[in-house]
């Protein structure tokens, strides 16, 4: 069970980190977009921004040290992807698995907190439900990764590995 959850959370993390849009039916404008949140025509991903289908301001492409924050956030999600695979492998030491689950939970909580603060600063507080039209699939997937890791840690503690 834990192994499957590890693979799922690593796939989700890599999707958020590397993929922007997967078209399902382009004629009907049906697509899976991995944006964290979107306002008007701008879509904000973990790696940058797209405006009207064209890459706009991307802090990752900027010069040092402006790019550090964007690269840091991107490396965090890549780390979740790699560490989730490592936890899913059969010959990983149980002590290391415990540490990696804890780290994954810590990182995904940090990411969720950062993006929640950003969304809250952009939010019109008179219409709070507007938050659900802003948030994108990427945000929910980070939330899913967090829940999966908490679930894995719970199952792991219940088992006799420790």
């Amino acid at each position: 069970m834990n192994r499957k959850i590890g693979y799922i959370s690593s796939i989700l993390a890599f999707l958020i980190a590397l993929i922007s849009i997967i078209p399902i039916s382009p004629e009907n404008n049906l697509k899976i977009s991995f944006n964290i949140f979107s306002i008007d025509n701008s879509e904000y991903y973990i790696w940058g921004t797209i405006e009207n289908g064209i890459s706009s301001l991307n802090s990752m492409n900027m010069n040092f040290p402006e790019n550090l924050m964007a690269i840091f956030l991107w490396i965090l999600i890549i780390f979740i992807g790699i560490s989730s695979i490592i936890t899913a492998l059969s010959n990983t030491k149980s002590n290391n698995i415990f540490k990696l689950y804890s780290l994954n939970i810590l990182i995904s909580t940090f990411l969720i907190t950062v993006y929640t603060i950003i969304v809250f600063t952009l939010l019109d507080w008179n219409d709070f439900l507007f938050i659900f039209s802003i948030l994108g699939l990427g945000y929910y997937l980070i939330l899913v990764i967090l829940l999966l890791n908490i679930l894995s840690l719970h199952f792991f503690k219940k088992s006799d590995y420790l």
Binding site: L18, Y45, G48
Partner: peptide, 12 residues
């Protein structure tokens, strides 16, 4: 490559 896409929305 980061932000891979499989459909160009500008040129469709």
């Amino acid at each position: 490559p980061i932000g891979i896409y499989f459909w160009n929305e500008v040129s469709s």
